[in-house]
Each structure stands twice: as C-alpha cells, then as structure tokens.
Amino acid sequence: MKSDLYVALENRQIAPGIMRLSIQRSEATGGMRELPEREIGIKRKTPLNFEAEDWAYSPVEPGQFFMLKTRAVEPLLPRPLSVHEASGDVVVFLYQTRGAGTKAIAALETGDPVLATGPCGRGFPVDDITGRVALIAGGIGIAPFRYLARRLSKSPSISSLVLVAGFRSMLFGLEDIAPFVTEIRVATEDGSAGTKGFVTDIIAPAPFDAVLACGPIPMLKAVKDSCKSAGTRCLVSVEARMACGIGACLGCTINTRSGNRRVCVDGPVFPAEEVLFDGGE
C-alpha cells in the first residue's frame, strides 16, 4: 500500500452514468495544494496487455481498492474505487457518477494528476477459491469482477465460473468479463434484457462451491440468506463511507459477529456469515 501521484490516461463514458478511468503511475511529486499541472500529450508507449501482465508495484488482490483524489478543492476526502484491472503501471476503475466525489473523478482529462492510495483492504482470496464458482454482481458491483474473473480463470482449481449480473435497465461491463467466464446470466429490474427481476431469481446457490458477491446491501443480504440455506460458501464485498481508507479513523465500521470491524482494512471482502446486515442476522 502506497500513496502516489498518477496521471489520468483515459476517462470515458461506457454507459449512461458509468465511466471507465485508467491511471498511470507518475514520477511527479506534489503537495496537497500544488498537485502538478496537466501533462499535455501523454500517451502510453506500449499498448497494455492485461491478459499477460500483473501490476508492477505490488501484488493486487481482486476486490482491493484505491482511494482517489483529484486536484479539485472539493470534495476534501478521497473516494474508494475497486480495482477493475491492474497491469504494468496502470490501474483501471469502473465507476458510477453519484455525488461530488465521483463527479470530480468523472471530470478528469487525459494528463490530469490523480492522487491514489492503495491497493487497500483485503480482497477475494483467489488461491483459496475452488470448484464451481458463481460471481454475483448488482449494478456497479460488477466493477471488481473483471480482474477477479481474469485471476480466477487462470486458477487450475476452478472448474466453472458463472457470472450472474443484475442491472436496473442498461447493461454494462459484461463484454470485458465474457472472455474469462463459462456462462453469463443477466437480470434487469425492468425486463429490458435477460430475465425480468433480481439476480436472486436467476441463481440457486446449491450447485456451486462458492458464491462471490458485490452490490447493494439488500442484494448481499438476499445472497447471504440463500447461500446459507443451500450450505454454499459465500463471500461478500461490502461498502461503507470512508475517510482514510487505511484503518486510522474507524469511520467505516460494520457490525459483524466479532464486533465492529473496519471495512477498509478488515474488508471490504468478508465471509457473508460474518456480516450482520441491519445490525441483526
């Protein structure tokens, strides 16, 4: 985990309200108020080969995240975004624009400086996941699954990998994951694509050895419950509001069987049975 300056390589809308940002590690340094100017004409010398390369600086676990901050004076705090891909000196994020923080990130142009701290937290334990695996994504929860699917697809102990993705209406991010999975199932709330309904309508956990889920709390809770009755191992990636992202402020805690735990260092990936959604079961 390090805090470094990066430059934005590409920041592009891939669906309404959904952006993809790649940042490249920079040699520049700068203080809080004097991040360097935009680098004009920045271009990668060699094309990225995500299929082959790993991130150059430290091992990155799928499900880990970076805290990102732009030059914008507001907001004050960095925002957590999951690693969508990491290769060479580049990290890629897939994100939904919501409030001031993600809008500031969406305004980044090629060459703009970005302060990034990471990789933060504990991700999915790739080496410890075996057999028939289902990845369940709700909306932008699909973000960490491209890198996760790529890593799992290389593992000899995985026999099948199914992606189950739920969206409100518009689909996104699927084609990036397709090369690494054996099957894709889709549900939309308005029925505009795939099955009309929720992800939990199109997957029964019983045939799987492990279910890995990322998405809104109600979805995670439903997935946890169905995995529990099926007796299937379930790991969930949870979100919390964060300030530091490194475990120093205790702002991001969630209620678990072993008390309040920090999402930013003890998570964001937890065994589902550990997490007490709504404070109770």
């Binding site: 901050k69 004050l76 705090l77 960095p78 302060l115 701290t117 530091c244 120093a248 402020c249």
Partner: peptide, 12 residues
C-alpha cells in the same frame, strides 16, 4: 483530518 485526506500529510 488532513492526515485522513492524505496519509503522508504529517511528513509533508
């Protein structure tokens, strides 16, 4: 707070 915004703040 400034140390939460950026971990290396005190050093700077």
């Amino acid at each position: 707070t400034a140390g939460l915004v950026r971990p290396d703040t005190c050093q700077r």
